[in-house]
Simulated scan of single mutants.
Amino acid sequence: MLVGYARVSTREQETRLQLDALRAAGVRRIFEEKASGAAQDRPVLRECLASLRKGDVLVVWKVDRVARSLKHLLSLLDQLDVVGARIKSLNEPLDTSTPLGMYLIQSLGSIAQLERSMIRERVIAGQVAAISRGQRHGRPRTLTDVQEDEVRRLAAQGVRQADIARQLQVSRAVVDRVMNPWRPRYAPQRPVLGPLLNACTKR
């Protein structure tokens, strides 16, 4: 039995192209999901894999629709092997029923992982370059330095955070972040130059 799986990363995207291709390939049972490929838990994918039986073929538009890392891909292949199912990509000549197909799919996963690592390193390098030029990385600050000083002044006078937030027309979380910048969940969005440089050079 052919079992299809289609995925897009966000709710704004559509799976129409994938669905049309799967149906054209003769797939009648299709699991459709809108979730990031990097998500640790994808409920629809889990349901799809649980439905597979011996002899079934998991059909995908491209391999990266079902697995976004080599580790995940190998884990998926192990799950399919346990139940006696195979995987087939419509846009890559891959079929795990053959040794060559298994080799190609593992190689493809390795290349995809390498590409993502290179993209990440380029992003980090860009951040480092921006910081070295004095550009601030991350979301724009909600409050100016003067307003942050005002927050601290009012807090020192015993004014409640909720009242300070109302006076400055910001959320209480913004005020709390100014008063407690050391808290991880409220830390300012300012990358530290040292770790970024280390990340770029450790390879």
Rank of each mutant, 00 (worst) to 15 (best):
R153C: 05
S69N: 07
R46Q: 15
R172T: 12
S107D: 11
A38F: 10
Y5S: 02
A125Y: 00
A156E: 14
E148D: 10
L77V: 04
L74I: 13
G101R: 00
S36P: 07
V60T: 03
R116W: 04
R16I: 12
E115R: 02
K202Y: 10
L90P: 09
R139C: 06
V8K: 03
L74V: 15
A39S: 15
L114Y: 13
Q106D: 10
V123E: 09
G109A: 07
V123T: 14
A38K: 11
P140K: 00
Y103C: 14
P188F: 03
R46N: 13
L17C: 07
L76T: 00
A173N: 10
P195I: 00
T96R: 02
V66S: 00
I111E: 05
L108K: 07
A6Q: 02
R23M: 08
L104Y: 09
V123M: 13
G194V: 14
R141Q: 12
G138W: 01
G194S: 13
Q79G: 09
M179K: 11
S132Q: 15
T96F: 06
R141C: 08
Q169P: 09
S97L: 07
L90H: 02
V178W: 01
R203K: 14
T96E: 04
R172D: 06
L2H: 12
S117R: 15
A156P: 09
A199S: 11
S9F: 06
R133E: 11
L94N: 00
R42E: 05
R141I: 02
Y5K: 00
R133Y: 01
I119E: 08
D145W: 06
D149K: 13
R139H: 09
Q79N: 12
R65P: 07
D163R: 09
R185F: 12
